[in-house]
Design a binder for these strands. Structure first.
Lengths: 331, 331
DNA sequence: TTGTAAGCGTTATCAA
DNA sequence: TTGATAACGCTTACAA
């Protein structure tokens, strides 16, 4: 391994001068700079960032922990946060937690292990115990998630209740009267409780009763498809479905098609997230579209404000959203 | 910031003993261990990994550079590589290069900057110049990509020619005679040349002429949709389409639907990649399915072998693949 | 413009 | 079982 001292010795200067060249600082004569640069090239020198970080006490890296990478929702989040962070001079590394609470904790510990300056944690199902929150206080963190959290934590959440309520209202406005919610968690009912709450709120205002609330084995396309099969096989008559997420909705639409049920004529469906593929499905998917760009920018802003010690607010903010109507709810 | 020295002073031992406790090494009396642990807890001590890495000379982190994160193809790749690396005791951080050659270079430099032990680079369009390859020689790297590369580099590629040839043969076997390829790059024809080559090879064997090769503005769903519109508006009669990737194919199917063309009755379509959503589309998508698990495992294996200095092979390997037939090519 | 000295927090080595 | 010492590669502060 080539160090600055090696390069310095070869050129006949001190390590400090080499450091100045490597970091593009001024105060180095053109001649020396040139000779140092030549030797850096020649020797294949690589900066040891552990050493630099040890010295300067920060890494300029923000960690982003997401439950899964193979969904466009979290992929897009990664893309947007990376861009927002780059604008502020930070780099982002993405960690996958696999949505298991223990892995979310592991991500937090990892962030310590990797010496991230800060962490953005998309916490699908952080356990209620205090212990993880204690962990979170050890490293500057912004949470993106669904859960009610103590006010002193930085937290950005989606408009789960209002968004799902308006999505449900859209179905009702389009003539649906026999509505089902696909998204009951198998065990922990608190997870995604907000979306369910919004669904029931809309029904209650309209004076309707839910036909059913279908359990969801996993909150993804496969789970949605399975739930749709179950719904068809159990036989309750349904003309509108509110799905927990777009991925679930895509699975539901496909699962209905498997049973010969065609949307939007037979059953209308809405999702949540507005993933990139929503407008490419057949039928294209009506959905709650949170402002992902806003969310990403705000998460980074708040984290950086905290990192750089300026004024920063705590507590929960809710991302703005819009209802996007496409073919899956057309009359 | 609490250091080992701080903890040591508080307990009345030396930093070395604290280090031993933190790292779970033996040779520390139960009593001392307990007291040190208590103080670690109490003080909120956090290991400074920059210091450790400086000392031990490695980081245990593998970088994965992919063109984009908001596609399930690369998302899945990230998931699988993360899992394969974890099995070998390495962690993975994912970097987004945005598919621009300059960013792929930036990723390489970044990997140096972050002190990854090694890098897996999914190089969509690495430039031909030698310079980047010189860069690659500075850090242990495995390339996942489409390009012909010098033999001394570790390289895993997909069966672009054979895969696309077989996919095209499937269309022909299902009765298609008027075939189009959607995936001509706007400028650089060398990119993804292999897939085009496979398409033409199948045609030639069957004694057919291609109806057209449609340019693709961007290799994603949006580009595919646009190309399909163009194809419909230009009017050539087509009964089978080979798309560059599944994402493009999904866009193509939707673009055809926009113009009232229904698959698979009117036009059959095949893609490449077997992304998770391929089986959830309507119609579900026939495609070339590379063995992603094999690819991820092999990439990690080869990188780790290189890192740990054992025997390692160089050169190019090709991932196995299968043709998966679904509804988009049914008769 | 360049050099000297010191230290960032950790761990390896050797001695007690 | 514990401690003293040195060193990893780099940057900051200050002196020349």
């Amino acid at each position: 391994m080539v160090t600055m001292s090696d390069v310095a010795r070869a050129v006949g200067v001190t390590p400090v001068t080499v450091s100045n060249v490597v970091n593009g600082r001024k105060g180095v004569s053109p001649d020396v700079r040139r000779r140092v640069q030549a030797e850096l090239e020649r020797s294949g020198y690589r900066l040891n960032v552990s050493a630099r970080n040890l010295r300067v006490g920060r890494t300029g890296v923000i960690g982003l922990a997401v439950p899964e990478l193979d969904s466009t929702y979290f992929g897009q989040l990664g893309t947007l946060i990376t861009a927002a962070a780059a604008a502020k001079g930070y780099r982002v590394v993405v960690e996958e937690t696999k949505a298991r609470a223990s892995r979310e904790l592991a991500a937090i510990q990892l962030s310590e292990a990797l010496d991230y300056d800060g962490l953005i944690l998309s916490a699908a199902r952080l356990p209620d115990a205090d212990e993880p929150l204690t962990q979170l206080r050890r490293i500057p963190t912004v949470l993106l998630g669904e859960r009610d959290l103590p006010q002193e934590l930085d937290h950005i959440e989606l408009a789960n209740i209002d968004g799902t309520r308006e999505a449900t209202e859209l179905l009702i406005a389009r003539g649906c009267r026999k509505l089902a919610f696909v998204g009951r968690a198998p065990r922990d009912d608190a997870v995604f409780g907000g979306r369910r709450e919004g669904f029931y709120a809309a029904l209650s205002v309209a004076g309707l009763e839910a036909v059913t609330s279908v359990p969801l084995s996993t909150p993804d396309m496969t789970g949605g498809r399975r739930s749709a099969h179950q719904l068809c096989d159990d036989g309750p008559d349904v003309d509108g479905i509110v799905a927990l997420t777009d991925a679930v909705a895509i699975g539901v639409i496909r699962g209905l098609a498997d049973r010969g049920v065609r949307g939007p004529h037979d059953v209308k469906v809405v999702g949540f997230d507005d993933v990139p593929e929503a407008s490419f499905m057949t039928p294209s998917l009506s959905t709650v579209a949170p402002d992902h760009v806003w969310t990403a920018r705000r998460a980074v802003e708040r984290l950086v404000a905290r990192l750089e010690g300026g004024d920063h607010i705590s507590g929960t903010e809710v991302a703005p959203f819009a209802i996007v109507e496409r073919e899956s709810t057309s009359v």
